[in-house]
Design a binder for these strands. Structure first.
Lengths: 207, 207
DNA sequence: CTAACTTTGTGAAGAAATTCACAAGCTCCG
DNA sequence: CGGAGCTTGTGAATTTCTTCACAAAGTTAG
């Protein structure tokens, strides 16, 4: 299969969130033009994005909302449950563990890890916090599909290296630092500093 | 000036964070090759990115770390203080208000707003929480350069519309929903759902 | 059934971003 | 001082992404 661009995947997420919204309002059909308007792109882009995966619409009519949203969920891999562990149960980590939207989308936080001995064996949102010493063992046992790391920047690469070595293939990092992983590991980083800098750049250079 | 691509600005942030790191370790010079290796790109890309803004290196030698990092700070608009307000003092909002890295980079959280009357007039991190009713007045008074919104998805667009109408030009949203703003307003969204979906897409389609 | 009207799906064209490749400039060493 | 050795800065080539534009296919009205 042709390599799908990152930007395409992002847009699919956006389309899906609209489809779910209008589906909840009982809308039955929509068009590439609607999706484009709401998603801030063009109708040609919407159709091109979808065309990588097949043909979902009816000419002259548009798309069936339930059909297309279901297809997108399948494409994005949301048609199943994912077992997620969170490494680093600080402010951000516990906020994430508590986040309801997580479970709704099929992401089950089934493991919490922290290196702070005073937190270990306590519970957060009904899940026992384990020592990071147990990480490798649990990952090797195949307990998780995705790891979310919310540890300080200075520990992040070390944790990532351990996760990767133990066989983790998908990592979402909230550490404000650039991380390196092998080609076959999927890493995404949520970096607020970078987003703020994009804002200040715009304010400084485009006004 | 030629329009600078978003991807370029992102990379500049990455370069800067490395430069600051090695600067702290006393490293005095570096090369496009070093920056490329650490930032996961190519040396030609690094040089091209920098070339949009001028000529910062010495042929045969590379870049002066202090000079280049200072130049990048200036380019990214980090050479000054920015006044930030946070709208929505829930879990995420108060975690952000507390975040130390914020102030280090010149971002001063000087205003907190919430619509929940039971929070108003209480303090968080030394800042009094005001009612969102006061938002327009304070923005019009020019109190803030940047607004960070951490409100529920369903309220986000309404808040953004109010911010924009009152004259806010830069907004960072943590609401998991697509938002619309006029052309002259810079909006960035941190959307964890989207990042997770990029991961599950990769796990589903590339393995 | 036919004609007018929609909207998709997709090659082709165009634009944008990345990579190549090399001349130009600087340092260092003998 | 001159030549060998680096590394930058940048046009040109290439690749990737987006937009255009239109045939194909369906719908609706008469």
């Amino acid at each position: 299969m042709k390599r799908i661009a990152d930007s395409t995947v992002r847009r699919l997420s956006i389309y899906l969130s609209f489809l779910e919204e209008i589906e909840a309002h009982g809308v039955l059909t929509t068009s590439s033009d609607d999706l484009a308007r709401l998603g801030g792109t063009t109708s040609a882009q919407v159709r091109k994005d979808l065309s990588f995966f097949g043909s979902f619409g009816k000419r002259g009519l548009g798309y069936s909302v339930p059909e297309l949203s279901s297809a997108l969920r399948e494409i994005l891999g949301l048609g199943r449950q994912w077992r997620v562990c969170i490494v680093g149960v600080g402010k951000v980590g516990s906020a994430l563990a508590r986040y309801a939207g997580f479970a709704e989308r099929g992401f089950n936080v089934t493991g919490l890890y922290d290196s702070d001995a005073s937190k270990v064996n306590h519970r957060s949102v009904g899940v026992v916090i384990r020592s990071t010493d147990d990480l490798e063992r649990d990952i090797r046992a195949g307990k998780y599909d995705i790891a979310v790391i919310t540890v300080p920047a200075e520990n992040a690469q070390a944790i990532v290296d351990r996760l990767v070595k133990a066989g983790m293939k998908a990592i979402l990092s909230f550490a404000p630092t650039q991380l390196t992983v092998p080609e076959d590991v999927e890493l995404r980083t949520v970096n607020m500093a970078m987003e703020l800098e994009a804002l200040t750049f715009a304010l400084t250079n485009r006004s």
